[in-house]
Amino acid sequence: MSGSANVGVHVDHNIQEDPEKLAEFQAKVDDGVLIEVDDWMPCAYRNGMLRMAEHHANSEIIGALPEGEWITRAPSLRRKLALTAKVQDEVGHGQMLYRVSQDLGKTRDDMLRDLITGKTKYHNVFNYPAPTWGDIAMIQWLIDGAAIMNQGTLADGAYGPYVRTMRRINMEEAFHYKSGEDMVLTLMSGTQKQKDMCQDAFDRWWYPSLMFFGPHDKPNCEQLPPMRWRMKTVSNDDLRTRFVNRFAPAALALGLKFHVVEKNEQGLVTSKRPDDKLRLNEDTGNWEYTEPDWEEFFRVIRGHGPCNAQRLALRRMSYEQGHWVRKAILEGSTLVPPAA
């Protein structure tokens, strides 16, 4: 359920690529020919694709944590089955994306270790809390909706193994999004208490979902490697506009209200006021809104979001507790499992 909008590609200018090969590579990309793992590719492309796929894989398995917590508290058996299937899907996406990354030259074990020791990142959006069932509905509606929009364009990229994985992932995302829409509709056609819970969750998730697409693009983003090499095919700002155009009118139709919010350190809303900038601009056909707090965005990326420490602690605990199992499998060692 993630995107890779936050990952940059750092071109190492010390690496001199063969200009002829580079031109040939660019021509292939421009012609829409997909690149396979054993094709020649610039060093920065290989590293960039590895970073992107690894970041995406990390996001899938961390993203499963807040939702997994709600499985035992789902309000009905059908919702419980659906949420279990969804969490299983997300971890499966992680598995497939780690495979794409492994083929680009990094072991899965190294990636899991780098994730829990903070050497690599995962998507910012998973550092926010999900205190009610309303949040689970909002995550599936807004965040999975955003992910489908993003991944739909990533499936149009140039790296064959990643593109194939995106196509497969998107089939499953459709279910996540639809079940999320159903949950939001159910809450918003329910009692006043259900509607309030849904509105509160919407207040918590609207801005993280706008920030989902990453910061504003650099003015020449189409000329820079990520887009020139079709690692991504649509800019962050264009994706964000498409998202708002789809979701703002839907939320209004549901009776949800748009608020500009302030949050505390735990990510809970402390004060809110109506977003008076929210309106459809008839001239451009696009919806206008109050910008997200970009300082918050960068603060969360640097590790100071409401749930960063908690997510990593949980992932690390399960990695450490699984050590004896991996050892037993790989080395035939019969370490005694740690006492429960």
Partner: peptide, 18 residues
Amino acid sequence: YRLARGYSKAVRTKWEAI
């Protein structure tokens, strides 16, 4: 429960009502 089409009808009915 794990297919998008499993929700289409319910989603449509709820949208129509709302």
